[in-house]
């Protein structure tokens, strides 16, 4: 029984990281994905902030799933999400103003990040709190990994650094385009290409196996 529960919990967690990865599979939350991933540290911070909001709001939504009237559920979810976003906003200001400036309006915009509302509506409102939060944690981790994948590439090419550490020495020629908005699209496109190619290959391998 307990092993079955852990497996299910593990599956719930892994769903967001791999099979339903919000960035590379569901292509949700593109606004922060493209905008704040100019460096790895920004990407991670954004990912963590979103993960926190995801876990907390999914937990609360799940707790209240029986008492929230159907007619006003979306409004209620938005209020709950907005609350935690405001809290995160304060926390980030308290931790580092530089980070707060770098992330800019995108912290507040977590409110309208469709990953969170989507999870609240599609999953947390039908699931008990614990699995809902595990699932939300997985989604948040998947989102963070997605952001990080973009942030690392863009920081290395656009700045020659990784987490602020210089990789190539002073003579590095930065690819300016990578820290500009088009660079976000290019890198995201390349990652999507890679994942689509992988999925295609896996599919055709499975077909061959079954035949």
């Amino acid at each position: 029984m307990s092993s079955a529960t852990t497996t299910r919990g593990w599956d719930e967690f892994m769903e967001g990281i791999w099979k339903q990865n919000p960035v590379f599979v569901m292509v949700l939350g593109m606004c922060p994905t493209l905008a704040v991933t100019v460096s790895a540290i920004n990407a991670i911070s954004m990912g963590i902030a979103t993960t926190f909001v995801l876990i907390a709001s999914c937990g609360l939504v799940s707790l209240m799933r029986r008492i929230v009237p159907k007619e006003v559920r979306i409004a209620t979810y938005i209020v709950i999400i907005a609350t935690f976003v405001t809290a995160v906003d304060y926390f980030i200001q308290a931790i580092s103003l530089a980070l707060y400036d770098a992330l800019g309006a995108f912290i507040q915009l977590i409110v309208v990040n469709c990953i969170i509302l989507g999870r609240a509506e599609a999953h947390a409102s039908k699931t008990p709190p614990l699995p809902a939060m595990v699932n939300a944690a997985g989604m948040g981790a998947g989102f963070t990994i997605g952001l990080l994948a973009l942030g690392v590439v863009r920081e290395i090419l656009g700045n020659g650094t990784l987490f602020g550490l210089s990789l190539f020495g002073a003579g590095f020629q930065p690819w300016v385009i990578m820290v500009l908005p088009p660079g976000g699209f290019f890198v995201l496109g390349t990652w999507l290409l890679f994942f689509a190619w992988r999925a295609r290959r896996k599919q055709s391998a499975e077909v061959t196996q079954h035949a």
């Binding site: 020629q173 690819w175 300016v176 385009i177 990578m178 500009l180 088009p182």
Partner: peptide, 10 residues
Amino acid sequence: AFVQAAFPTA
């Protein structure tokens, strides 16, 4: 266009 945006100085 790509290199123009990537390496504007060069």
